[in-house]
Design a protein around this nucleic acid. Sequence first.
DNA 1: ATTTGATCATGT
DNA 2: ACATGATCAAAT
Length: 225
Amino acid sequence: MKTTEQLLQHCHNIAGLTLGQLASQLKVTIPADLKRDKGWVGQLLELALGAEAGSQALPDFPALGIELKTLPIDQQGKPLESTYVCVAPLTGVTSQSWQQSWICQKLQQVLWVPILAERQIPLAERIIGTAFLWQPSASEQLALQQDWEELMELITLGGIDQIRGAHGKVLQLRPKAADSKALTSAVGANGEPIKTLPRGFYLKASFTAAILQRQFNLAEQQVKS
DNA sequence: ATTTGATCATGT
DNA sequence: ACATGATCAAAT
């Protein structure tokens, strides 16, 4: 994939297809459900659109600085889930600024691919929506930064075990691990090294709902003009 | 163990 | 009904 234009054109070409149709074109086998293949939809779209980064800590399209995210929605266009962004660093990040953080860099340009994915719809029949490119507005950027600074302060001051999913307004910190027994290094209440459950940053569904709404309004205006 | 891709499933 | 906490797979 060479340019953003080509990437968006490619998205346009697959919009409206079912996941079954796309998988069949790519000769990918379709799991019965996502219980044991939670990342299958994301990986299918990476393959379809030519994302290169694999499981490296890089944007999906490094040359374009674009991150690809599928977003499960219902028929009203509302997100069905929060959106995972990246792992939260729990050590060695005192005095890192929001602008320097991996999460900020990842969110500078996101290619959202909505998928009509209500649980009652069989996986193969779920429909790919119209993808769009998003860059955070000034107010979105500020909201993210404020939540991030608050969460990072708690992490660096040893308050990680007080943080729960409900903490942030738009950004939340939740477990991101194989199971509840996984351990990674962090900072304890007295500054001592401790082991705790690995966490990740997630965008709350209300935040991605607002992004979708804005895009919907924009698309509507373009149709009318 | 860690990062990527996320959704599952239970508690509230 | 919804969000939080728990979990699954592959690549490295």
